[in-house]
């Protein structure tokens, strides 16, 4: 087998298939799907790039979804681990990002259910904000704190839809794949959330 050396880090089997073309692009220019192909071929640098690309947006999503600041990193790390470990199940029908957010959302839902079984958290304005942000880190400004408190009061699916759309810029089709709903239902959830939250940023 002929080996091709690109830069100082890649050594890949040569063939003329479309997969080979993905090796020719610099890592940072490669699409997520190309990076997954590289990872499947044993290239760990591709996995590293996927983590660098998606860990911060994923962390922001989990944080705004109500995960505690100490919990965010563990959830994100577990989501990447599960995503890479089960990469053979990913068939590219959804984007890698959608798939990753789906795994992370499920992990966060499970963690929330476990916590709810263990402790009873009283819900009023302050507690809703505090449970998402025990150290007040997110209360950098008043609007953000109010928004976090109101987000915590939204029904879970409505909150997740709203964040994937408004914070992450996902289309309704991708949101429905990530959250196991329909694009039409996602659209309704989004607009209901907008209606409810608009007044808190006046």
């Amino acid at each position: 087998m002929v080996k091709v050396f690109i830069g100082n880090e890649l050594s890949v089997p040569f063939n003329n298939g479309p997969e080979f073309a993905s090796y020719l692009r610099p890592m940072t220019d490669a699409s997520d799907e190309d990076l997954v192909v590289r990872f499947l071929a044993g290239d760990q640098i591709a996995a590293d790039e996927l983590v660098r690309r998606h860990s911060m947006p994923l962390g922001r999503y989990l944080r705004a979804s109500g995960a505690g600041s100490a919990e965010v990193e563990d959830l994100a790390q577990e989501a990447f681990f599960k995503a890479f470990r089960a990469i053979d199940s990913w068939r590219g029908e959804a984007s890698f990002r959608t798939w990753l957010f789906r795994i992370a959302t499920n992990l966060h839902r499970d963690a929330y259910r476990r916590e709810r079984r263990q402790v009873t958290v009283p819900i009023d304005g302050h507690d809703a904000a505090d449970s998402a942000d025990p150290e007040g880190e997110a209360g950098a400004n008043e609007i953000e704190a109010r928004l976090m408190a109101e987000l915590a009061r939204l029904p879970r699916l409505q909150r997740e839809v709203f964040l994937l759309r408004a914070q992450q810029g996902l289309e309704y089709g991708a949101i429905s794949e990530a959250l196991g709903t329909t694009p039409g239902a996602a659209r309704v959830h989004y607009h209901n959330a907008v209606k409810r939250l608009k007044e808190y940023v006046q």
Binding site: S55, L163, Q167
Partner: peptide, 17 residues
């Protein structure tokens, strides 16, 4: 406001990777 919400989560991408 939501697009900027949760900015700077305590994540070190290189260490996580």
């Amino acid at each position: 406001a939501v697009a900027g919400l949760g900015a700077q989560p305590a994540i070190d991408p290189a260490a996580m990777s």
